[in-house]
């Protein structure tokens, strides 16, 4: 729900194992080369899990992150998109792509 121009959306991020923090939640299950699940989607990371991942040579994991987008951020991003697409308004490849990018921005609002 919109509250004074600030909203919170869940997005998925790929985070390097050196930057993950205790309490972060896996957005995708971690699977080894044999297809066995090591950690299920939704698992909350603990210090021991993180060091186990490090020992296994895992470089990065997908986590859920909460992002806040202010109204100013939103408007700046929208303006940037308009400028970025300014020379390709009639290009058949970019027409649906621009719509998708604007819709994705709208969803984060």
């Amino acid at each position: 729900m919109v509250k004074q121009g600030r909203t919170i959306t869940m997005t998925i991020k790929l985070v390097s194992i050196s930057d993950v923090q205790v309490g972060m939640e896996l957005a995708k299950a971690l699977v080894n080369e044999k297809g066995m699940t090591l950690s299920a989607e939704g698992t909350q990371l603990t210090a021991s899990l993180i060091s186990r991942f490090e020992r296994m040579g895992i470089e990065a994991v997908y986590i859920h992150s909460q992002e806040q987008m202010s109204e100013e951020d939103y408007l700046a991003k929208k303006l940037h998109i308009e400028k970025h697409f300014s020379k390709v308004r009639d290009d058949p490849f970019f027409i649906p792509l621009k719509e998708v990018i604007l819709e994705r921005l709208e969803a984060k609002r």
Partner: peptide, 22 residues
């Protein structure tokens, strides 16, 4: 560097729907 018009062959050979682009 901003976007510039593409070679039309790209859209013909790689017709992507909005769902697929998402």
């Amino acid at each position: 560097v901003i976007l510039s018009p593409t070679d039309p062959t790209i859209s013909e050979l790689i017709p992507l729907t909005k769902d697929q682009l998402n």
